[in-house]
């Protein structure tokens, strides 16, 4: 995975663990966590494939724009690889 990533902006229905407020936002990989069963399959009693999970760090300025309380504060979230688009750094 690249150092810089963008969270995919798609909005499918159903059980997903990628928060809406982070979709389409760009962050950096804080750490790689290894593979975990895909929750989008676990939730529906499907055999869950292992998917790479990352902690991604976003600036509050990136998430909230001019409305950010303090633009330099940050937010970390765990995002599965299939929700991340690598960006050139």
């Amino acid at each position: 995975m690249a150092d810089r990533v963008r969270v995919r902006a798609m909005m499918p229905p159903g059980h997903v663990r990628t928060p809406a407020y982070l979709r389409g936002k760009t962050g950096i990989i804080e750490r790689s966590l290894g593979d975990y069963p895909n929750p989008e399959q676990l939730a529906y009693r499907q055999r869950a494939e292992p998917r790479a999970l990352y902690r991604v760090r976003f600036s509050m300025a990136e998430i909230w724009g001019a409305a950010a309380e303090n633009p330099d504060d940050t937010l970390d979230a765990e995002i599965f690889a299939h929700w991340l688009e690598p960006l050139e750094s």
């Binding site: 909005m11 499918p12 229905p13 928060p19 809406a20 407020y21 982070l22 998430i63 909230w64």
Partner: peptide, 15 residues
């Protein structure tokens, strides 16, 4: 329970 963008009710971060 889902708004017009497809955001679901429980996905409340930032609201």
């Amino acid at each position: 329970m889902t708004d017009t963008t497809g955001r679901r009710w429980h996905d409340m971060g930032g609201l």
